[in-house]
Design a binder for these strands. Sequence first.
RNA 1: GGCGCCGUCGCCAAGUGGUAAGGCAGAGGUCUGCAAAACCUCCAUCCCCGGUUCAAAUCCGGGCGGCGCCUCCA
Length: 471
Amino acid sequence: MRLYNTLTRREEPFTPSRDGTVRMYTCGLTVYARGHIGNFRTFVALDVLRRTLRHVAGFDVRQVMNFTDVDDRTIVESRTARVPLREYTDRFIAAFREDAASLGLEPVEAYPRATDEENLRSMVEMIQALEANGHTYRSDGSVYFRIATLPGYGKLARLDHEGIKPGARIDSDRYDKDDARDFVLWKATGPDEPTWDFGVGPGRPGWHIECSAMAHRLLDGSPIDIHAGGVDLVFPHHENEIAQSEGASGETFSRFWVHVEHLLLDEGAKMSKSLGNAFTVPDVLERGYRASALRYALLSVHYRKQLRFTWGGLDQAEEALKRLTACLARLDAVRGGAAHPEVTARVEAARRDFDDRLADDLNVPGGLGVMFELVRYLNTAIDDGGLGEADARLARAAFDGFDRVLGVIALRGAEETLADVPVEEIERLIAERKAARARRDFAAADRIRADLAGRGIVLEDTPTGTRWQRQ
RNA sequence: GGCGCCGUCGCCAAGUGGUAAGGCAGAGGUCUGCAAAACCUCCAUCCCCGGUUCAAAUCCGGGCGGCGCCUCCA
């Protein structure tokens, strides 16, 4: 498959470097608050990447997604809440897991936390390696990375080193640094702060070191195949990760860098917790939208384009999903009849086209187009009686294939089984209504339909019986 | 000030040299006890101006507009 690589600013053919297994690191959440849907835009996009690597490209994937559970904000917020740091961050890790499940994110192979001892130890080892290689200096008990010692510094972000804007936010952490662009590897303990001492003095990890160390430890050394995250991480986080990893090991850190563009608000501003304009997944669900619609909305724009989030956009996503599931229900109702060669050919072509779109730097919108063209074709075939049960089964398998990447049909199905009106009751009422219609008691029939409609269940009569659907 | 991205139908969004996918919304029709769904038909020449080319939404130049990054950030 082809993937856009931020390192080269080009699309390149991608294949894992070792025996068919993609080793991928994803920067996860800083768990000082519940992640918002902007964060999840990134995670959904990277979930699609993961699924495409597995199900379209046919690779195995070993993916690591970290939780940053110690930094200035987690420390401050936990102190404000008067809750121990670990307990405080546990809450938001649990919230992440809930939201990730709601959105149908495939679990990744490892979710390391920065403050787990084995991770802290590997960070310290990396810092010691950097010290041995002459890339560090100490100041007031903290250890810093001296970027002047690494000629390739800046290769990812391609920043103009000389042109730092006067007045830009430099040196915001107010420690003594020799150069504004140097960054902290290990921060000396402040008053009343959590602290660890595994060999470079008492303190806590700087933001960047955790990812370098955990990627190295959990993905079995450099170079890893893909390192991914939101675009805002390109600089300084990813640039500094490269500096640390390559300064310590002398080897390329990651072959590919994948960055997901931001989700913006309707007004065009970036959604972010610090700006106080963020929605969480539960916020969206409380408005009556389904997680499957949110997932669809988040993945329906190419990952390298900014996505403007609107409630109307969610409505459109919901309608599109209904069109899709309605077609699947029709397919499932087809009885009898052999395969038609023309249908087989169309379905096979759609599968190929879908995979081609996804393999082309994750062209999800293109893939959705292919899928909906097939929907129209199949609907027409059903109406014309030109679709046999064998065709329907083949088509259904194709949609299952699409959904291994999109993950949206399966999510709908899971939502159905969790809903408040039990399926058995719905089916009982449908049977009652059928009896009423048979004796032409349409008033009773309509009463049942209205009752279910009031509880969010829509009935549709078809030649093969009554179908129902949740609103 | 530096670096970079983007501007396609009312809305969302593919397409990046060969004559505009798809979704939502809208109009008309078929079907139906009603309703819904579904299907059919209709609905754009690609921000503007120049240029290159047999051919440009796609390449080049210049505008206009929107956004991101330049040490909190997915």
